[in-house]
């Protein structure tokens, strides 16, 4: 039997989600036996045009070159799986979409902005092509990625945990930092998958895994208000790593003001 072909593609991102493979240690070597890795630049394998069974995509789409490239990835791949917050929801760089900051920021950062070619918005992969499966998280959890790979190789739709970080806290016997310490924890609206790391480390969740299923952002906002957060701070809790995810965008946008700053 021919080994399945896979590819790992990078777009606008920090490389942290690809590390799910590169940090996998022995599992990386084992994976390389099970599948034929056809394209993975950071690992030293370059064949951008390879036809593959599964393409993993890291990063958001933020330039016209990237737009052309992601369409080619789609055409050459049986399954397209997004890897992490940037590819799935636009990531931190999607903050520039909020007030059409692209032009202004380009001029503020670069002396020769005419050399910088970017799309007006930094968007998730699904804004441009059909995506077969999305892995949330900033970064994705390595075990979650390897489990998804395994499930896809067996021809099974990967498990997609969508319940809330709160549920994970209960499973881990973690003490609630919102109830006991009044911290503005985003656990009640955030998708699980990280292992409830922040509450277990004594801090409030900052929603890096994106919106959970059946979330109630109005109640969340009211609770944050009750904890004494001014509206702009509530907006910033939603408009952070997953600001382009529709549920968070809708919750944070009404309170959003230029530059987020308090008056």
């Amino acid at each position: 039997m021919q080994r399945p072909h896979i590819a790992v593609h990078k777009f606008s991102s920090c490389d942290g989600c690809q590390l799910a493979f590169l940090n996998a240690g022995e599992d990386l070597l084992e994976l390389a036996q099970l599948v034929d890795i056809r394209h993975f630049l950071e690992a030293g394998i370059a064949d951008e045009y390879a036809q593959v069974d599964i393409a993993f995509v890291e990063g958001s789409i933020s330039t016209s070159e990237e737009l052309t490239r992601i369409q080619r990835v789609r055409a050459n791949s049986r399954f397209v799986v997004t890897l992490g917050a940037c590819a799935t929801a636009g990531g931190l760089q999607a903050l520039r979409n909020l007030d059409d900051s692209n032009e202004a920021w380009k001029h503020a950062v670069y002396a020769q902005p005419e050399f910088i070619q970017t799309l007006d918005q930094a968007e998730p992969v699904s804004a441009h092509i059909e995506v077969d499966f999305e892995l949330w998280g900033c970064p994705v959890n390595g075990q979650q990625v390897l489990a998804a790979v395994q499930q896809l190789l067996f021809g099974v739709t990967p498990l997609d945990p969508r319940d809330k970080v709160c549920m994970e806290c209960k499973r881990q016997h973690a003490v609630c930092v919102m109830v006991t310490e009044g911290r503005p924890c985003m656990g009640p609206v955030t998708r699980t998958g990280c292992g409830a790391l922040c509450p277990r480390f004594g801090r409030d969740c900052y929603a890096c895994f994106g919106p959970a299923e059946n979330l109630n952002t109005d109640a969340m906002s009211q609770r944050l208000q009750g904890l004494g957060l001014p509206p702009s701070d509530i907006a910033r809790r939603f408009l952070f790593i997953n600001s382009h995810a529709p549920a968070f965008h809708a919750a944070g946008r009404p309170f959003y003001r230029e530059g987020f700053a308090d008056d």
């Binding site: 920021w105 503020a108 987020f260």
Partner: peptide, 16 residues
């Protein structure tokens, strides 16, 4: 280097 810009220094403005 053609890695797309992500403008971190601008995200930071206005954040606590």
């Amino acid at each position: 280097i053609f890695e797309p810009p992500r403008y971190f220094e601008k995200f930071l403005e206005g954040r606590r």
